[in-house]
Design a protein around this nucleic acid. Structure first.
Length: 286
DNA sequence: GTCCAGGTCGCGC
DNA sequence: GCGCGACATGGA
């Protein structure tokens, strides 16, 4: 099936401009430039899809043998649209980029899109798994989680894919299992809390995907501090906050303060002139 | 063995 | 509000 594009964009950049593509169940084939991942549909069906870029449309193919009704196909399109932020507009960011020269090539290249997961639940889990650890361990913990608790999908050509585990599955696995087998360490309690909030109709985690909703309650998820909140905000298309962590501090200190660590206020104000696009400005400044 | 990696929590002040 | 120790894990 095809998803028509209103404006062209940098497909490979949208996938690889941040690290999410390296986390299961995402896959990227460098040779064919095809993106793969699994999706869970509203009807409960699991699919593995491939996505390729064709200038004015994305081509989406379902890789497993499964009967889909029209609603399923619409659902797949919705999820792919979300993952690639097809409904997001980056013109204001490009204008700022030109004003500040530094990042002016972004507009020409149609950069700015950063890959995200179909559900906020998946992104909350993944962001928590980036905290206080190395990137390699994030990759490993995510892989353990998907392989250990995800559901298996066999493609037409016998390839094995796994879904990202549901909140219910994570909750049922329990804190001890997450610690002992998924090897997420003390973060197990945070994953459980995220799963609980995902299943709690009052909290309604997925509703934060609405562009008008105030995000501050996301901080109530255990394990989500200032850095994680900023990263989740970015994933939800809000770029006004900065993910101030060790990488940010090192980057800014080296690039703007002659390797002499400035105070907190100075660290936080480097991208002030980027207004609502500070996060993207920082990201593409690296 | 010690230290640390894309931090955060819970406490005491 | 701020400072501080604790926290699981695996690699250097």
């Amino acid at each position: 099936m095809k998803i028509l594009l209103e404006t062209p964009f940098h497909f490979e950049g949208a996938i690889k401009d941040h690290g999410w593509w390296m986390l299961a169940p995402n896959r990227w084939d460098e040779g064919t430039k095809i993106y793969y991942r699994t999706l869970k549909l509203d009807t409960g069906k699991n699919v593995a899809v491939s996505v390729s870029y064709h200038k004015d449309y994305l081509n989406v193919e379902v890789e497993n043998n499964i009967d889909l009704i029209e609603m399923d196909k619409e659902n797949i399109k919705q999820q792919i649209t979300w993952i690639f932020r097809l409904e997001e507009n980056f013109e204001d960011f490009y204008v700022l980029g030109q004003e500040h020269k530094k990042i002016s090539s972004l507009a020409k290249d149609k950069r700015g899109r950063l890959l995200r997961s179909p559900t906020l639940f998946e992104d909350v889990i993944k962001v928590i798994l980036t905290t206080n650890t190395s990137w390699q361990q994030t990759v490993n913990m995510t892989s353990n989680l998907v392989n250990g608790l995800g559901e298996t999908i066999l493609t037409k050509n016998e390839q094995k894919f796994k879904t990202f585990p549901s909140a219910k599955k994570v909750l049922e696995a329990g804190e001890e299992y997450l610690k002992e087998h998924i090897r997420v360490g003390y973060r197990s309690a945070y994953l459980i809390d995220a799963a609980k909030k995902s299943l709690d109709d009052t909290f309604d985690l997925e509703s934060f995907k609405h562009p008008d909703k105030d995000l501050s309650e996301i901080k109530n998820i255990k394990g989500v501090g200032p850095y994680a909140f900023s990263t989740l905000s970015m994933l939800l298309g809000r770029y006004e906050t900065l993910p101030i962590d060790s990488v940010y501090r090192d980057h800014v200190t080296n690039k703007y303060f002659d390797s002499v660590r400035p105070n907190k206020k100075e660290l936080a104000s480097v991208y002030d002139e980027w207004g609502n696009y500070k996060h993207l400005a920082y990201w593409f400044d690296r």
